[in-house]
Simulated scan of single mutants.
Amino acid sequence: MKTMHQRMEEGLLFTDECEGLPEERLAAKRLMREFNASDPADTENRVKLMARIFHIDGAQAATFWIEPPFSFAYGSHISIGEGAYINVGCTFIDDGRLKIGKGLMCGPNVTIATVSHPINSDLREYMYTSPVTIGDDCWIGAGVTICPGVTIGAGTTIGAGSVVTKDIPDHVVAVGNPCRVLRKVSEQDMTTYNHGHPIDPADLEEERQLRNS
């Protein structure tokens, strides 16, 4: 017989009131409250809290950043790549596995769910998980909802307010509800920003000097 933890991991129907699951969620909520109430100037403490939330070491936790408030179910089912930035008000429901690649730029108020319920109302008390994967160097716009089972390819941009219900390939711009591919990332995107404004190497160098001054 499978354990409830195994049923969760394998996408089978499960409930979450046994095998220490309520205690795991309670511990996560306490860490969430502590993280969200932390001093914004005390980055060392925030890194320590992120290490505890995601069950990783401090060196790994120091390679990405999350702006409070941040909401999650367990924390331990989330992996986040180096250089990722997650803005305020995001909610990651991680009953299932959530894998976030390197260099993610995640706008405010993004919701990612890895768990759902049967449509059959007689079975609504049950849940099942479907993992979510976000590739390296993605940009997820403000207010996006990513549904269970979705994979978003590397280098892809998801427009603000989109609802992502199906897989999105690498290196595209996708928008809408439901989210659909609008176009591929183009050569023009490599040389311009903000509706055609040119990327000037001299301007970038000036910005770097300001940043390092």
Rank of each mutant, 00 (worst) to 15 (best):
K2Q: 15
M4G: 00
M4V: 13
R7A: 15
L13I: 04
T15M: 07
T15F: 01
E17Q: 09
C18P: 01
E19H: 03
E19I: 03
L21I: 15
L21Y: 06
E23S: 09
E24T: 01
A27D: 00
K29Y: 10
R30T: 12
F35T: 05
F35A: 07
A37I: 04
A41S: 14
T43V: 11
N45T: 13
L49C: 05
L49G: 02
D57H: 09
G58R: 13
T63E: 12
W65S: 15
I66D: 03
F70N: 00
A73N: 05
E82Q: 12
E82S: 13
G83H: 05
A84F: 02
I86R: 03
V88R: 10
G89R: 00
F92G: 02
R97Q: 12
R97L: 13
L98P: 01
K99T: 15
K99Y: 10
L104D: 00
P108I: 05
N109T: 10
A113T: 10
S116Q: 11
H117M: 12
Y126H: 10
Y128C: 06
P131G: 10
I134K: 02
D136V: 03
C138N: 03
V144I: 03
V144T: 08
T145F: 14
V150N: 00
V150F: 00
A154S: 13
G155E: 03
T156Q: 00
A160N: 07
S162G: 02
T165G: 02
T165R: 05
K166Q: 13
K166P: 02
P169H: 07
N177C: 13
R180K: 14
R183E: 12
S186Y: 06
Q188M: 11
D189F: 06
M190N: 07
H197L: 15
P201W: 00
A202H: 02
R211W: 15
R211M: 15
N212C: 08
S213Q: 11
S213A: 12
